[in-house]
Amino acid sequence: MNIQAITRAGAAGMIVSGLALGYSYIAHPHYMSPETIAAPFWIVIHALFALSLVLGLLGTIAIYALTAERAGGWGLAGFISLFIGMMLIFGLDYYEVLIAPYLAVHYPQVIADHGAGDAMGLVAVFFPLAGVLTVLGYAALAYGWMKGDVLPKPVAFAMIIAAFAFGFGLSPLGGLMAARVTAAAFGAALIAIGVSAWHSAAFSPAAT
């Protein structure tokens, strides 16, 4: 694997991640009854979300590894934050894909009482925290990339704005529609970073 191949693999991961994230949030069911969670569509949507997490994190790692020095302290802080946040989110998504549908069929009262699990016990604390860490991490990383002349300013600003908007959309103040719209915007910002990385020599460690 040469540098160009690693960059383009990371860029492709970011692009697919953004597409999968936007679609999975837009298509996410509004009501989370046992019947909804037991349906195949629920599994498909959350499998796509898991794909967006995996490819997004792998893509970000590949691109950040090549540009870490120029991303500076902001980039490092952002990368650490988003890495922890996305790992925590994947834990809940693992539950939503593999465990919640089983519970919905065999123990529907658990789902009726607790929904998809995002408000179950300490998950109600750590799931919002994971979202905050992820969006703030991407905002900080984009800012580091912009300061290091890795990312064009319009793309960096788009990610920073989309990250804060997505954070609002995920908060109790946002609501379902805001979460869907801002998730689509955040996904589009991931795609823009992927496209920029695919075409730009600035994502090479040899760039100045």
Rank of each mutant, 00 (worst) to 15 (best):
F157C: 08
R8P: 08
A112G: 13
F41M: 15
Y94S: 14
P108R: 04
A116D: 15
L66S: 14
G187E: 12
Y138Q: 10
A142D: 06
F166A: 07
I111M: 06
V135A: 05
G137H: 01
A156Q: 09
G174I: 03
V97R: 02
F127I: 12
A12K: 09
A207C: 09
P154R: 07
P154G: 07
V105D: 01
L133K: 02
P128C: 05
G10V: 02
G174D: 00
F168I: 07
G121P: 02
A68N: 07
A68L: 03
P40D: 04
I191K: 03
T208K: 15
F168G: 07
R8H: 14
F186S: 06
L136E: 09
A142M: 08
I6F: 04
L103E: 14
W145N: 10
F168L: 10
G137Y: 04
G137P: 03
Y102T: 14
L21H: 12
A11P: 08
D118T: 12
S204R: 12
A104S: 11
D118H: 13
G121C: 11
S81K: 00
A142G: 11
V125K: 05
A11T: 11
A119T: 15
H106M: 08
G56I: 13
A189P: 07
A11K: 09
G91P: 09
L51M: 10
V135S: 04
S196W: 01
Y102C: 05
L151V: 15
F186W: 09
F127D: 10
M159V: 14
L53K: 00
M32L: 15
P108N: 04
A130W: 03
I26E: 11
M1R: 12
L66C: 04
F203D: 07
G131V: 00
V16H: 04
A185R: 00
T36R: 11
F203I: 02
V150W: 06
S17T: 08
G78P: 01
F83S: 15
G56H: 10
M87V: 14
A202N: 14
A100K: 05
I43F: 10
A179N: 03
L190K: 05
A104T: 04
